[in-house]
C-alpha cells in the first residue's frame, strides 16, 4: 500500500524562479520567504518521498484557451519546463510515474470525475518553482512527478467543493495503489494576490490567515466560499487556493501542521509555505 506522508503547500510566484536563478536567497527582500523552506528541507530529508502528486494551475505554457481542461492529469514518462515568455527555463527534467498516473486516472474516473489525460505535457513555474524550492541545486530530483492541473484561469472554475472532492478521490487512489511508494502531495499558488484591474495589488491578510488557520484542522471551512467569493476575498489570482484545497483533500488521515511561513510581499503576492503531516488514523 502506498502511503501519503504529508502535504507541501507553497506560493509559486515566477519571480521566485528569477531570484533562484540570480542566487538571491539571502537577499533581505527574499530571505524571509526562502527561510520558510528550512523545515520542509528537514522533513523531506527524513521522509524521502518517492513520488510528488502536484495540484497546480498552468499559466499558458501547456494549455491555451483553445483547449482548456477543468482538470488534467499527467501520465507522461517525463515532464519538462520551458521558456514561458521571459527567457527562464529550468533545466532539470521531472521523471514521471506512468503506472501510478494511470492508476489515479482509473480510480478518479471510477469516482465519476472526468479529467483530461496528458501523455505529453509541459509543466510551468507552478510546478518548477516549488520543486526548485524543495530540492535546490543541480542534482536530479530525487522523486517522480504526477502533475494534476486545475483550471484557475478561465471562468467558470471548478467549485472549491469539487476540487476538494477530486483531491479526496486522488488520495483514495494513492492509498489503494499496490506499490510501496511514499507520496507527498503539493498544492501550489496563492495566497491572496491580484495582478490585473483597478484593484491590482489587492492583498487580504484576514482571508489568508483564515485559510492558514483552518487548512490542517478544518479544511471544509474553506469550502464555504464559492469561486467568485474567493476572487473577491483573495483577488483574481488568489483563487489559486483551489490547488491547495484539492491537495488538502488528498490528505485523508490524521493531519497536523508541522510548519508554516506567511510573508508579504513577494512580488505582488502574500506568500505562504505550509508543511502538513498526514498519519494513519487510529482505529479501535
Amino acid at each position: 500500500m502506498s502511503k501519503i506522508a504529508g502535504g507541501i503547500f507553497t506560493s509559486h510566484v515566477p519571480g521566485i524562479g528569477g531570484a533562484i536563478a540570480k542566487g538571491l536567497q539571502q537577499d533581505p527582500y527574499w530571505k524571509p520567504f526562502f527561510d520558510g523552506f528550512e523545515p520542509v528541507h528537514q522533513w523531506l530529508a527524513a521522509e524521502k518521498p518517492d513520488v510528488a502528486v502536484v495540484f497546480y494551475n498552468d499559466h499558458g505554457l501547456n494549455f491555451f484557451l483553445d483547449k482548456m481542461p477543468t482538470f488534467a492529469i499527467g501520465a507522461a514518462a517525463e515532464y519538462r519546463h520551458e521558456d514561458e515568455g521571459w527567457g527562464i527555463a529550468f533545466q532539470r527534467p521531472f521523471e514521471g510515474h506512468q503506472d501510478l498516473s494511470w492508476h489515479i486516472i482509473e480510480e478518479v474516473v471510477a469516482s465519476e470525475f472526468d479529467p483530461v489525460t496528458c501523455q505529453s505535457m509541459l509543466v510551468d513555474h507552478a510546478v518548477a518553482v516549488p520543486f526548485e524550492l524543495c530540492w535546490p541545486g543541480k542534482e536530479a530530483f530525487p522523486l517522480k512527478l504526477i502533475p494534476i492541473a486545475v483550471n484557475t484561469v478561465q471562468h467558470p472554475l471548478p467549485s472549491p467543493k469539487r476540487c476538494y472532492n477530486l483531491g479526496q478521490a486522488v488520495g483514495r487512489a494513492i492509498e489503494s495503489w499496490g506499490g510501496d511508494e511514499k507520496v507527498v502531495v503539493f498544492g501550489t499558488g496563492g495566497l491572496s494576490h491580484q495582478l490585473e484591474g483597478g484593484r491590482a495589488g489587492h492583498i487580504n491578510v484576514d482571508y489568508d490567515k483564515f485559510c492558514l488557520r483552518n487548512l490542517a484542522p478544518d479544511p471544509e471551512a474553506l469550502l464555504q466560499h464559492d469561486t467568485l467569493d474567493i476572487v473577491e476575498l483573495a483577488g483574481s489570482q488568489g483563487v489559486e487556493i483551489l490547488n491547495w484545497i484539492a491537495a488538502r483533500g488528498a490528505l485523508r488521515g490524521s493531519v497536523r501542521e508541522l510548519a508554516s511561513n506567511y510573508h508579504i510581499p513577494i512580488s505582488n503576492t502574500a506568500a505562504a509555505t505550509v508543511l502538513l503531516e498526514n498519519s494513519d488514523k487510529v482505529h479501535a
Binding site: P39, G201, I203, A259, N261, H263
Partner: peptide, 26 residues
C-alpha cells in the same frame, strides 16, 4: 499602470504590509 499610482507608491503599498509569521513544530 492600472491603478494610476506611481511605481514607487505601488511598491511601497505592498511593502507596507511588511508581515512575516512563522510556525515550526518540527
Amino acid at each position: 499602470l492600472q491603478t494610476g499610482m506611481e511605481l514607487e507608491d505601488f511598491k511601497a503599498a505592498l511593502l507596507a504590509h511588511g508581515l512575516t509569521e512563522t510556525r515550526n513544530f518540527l
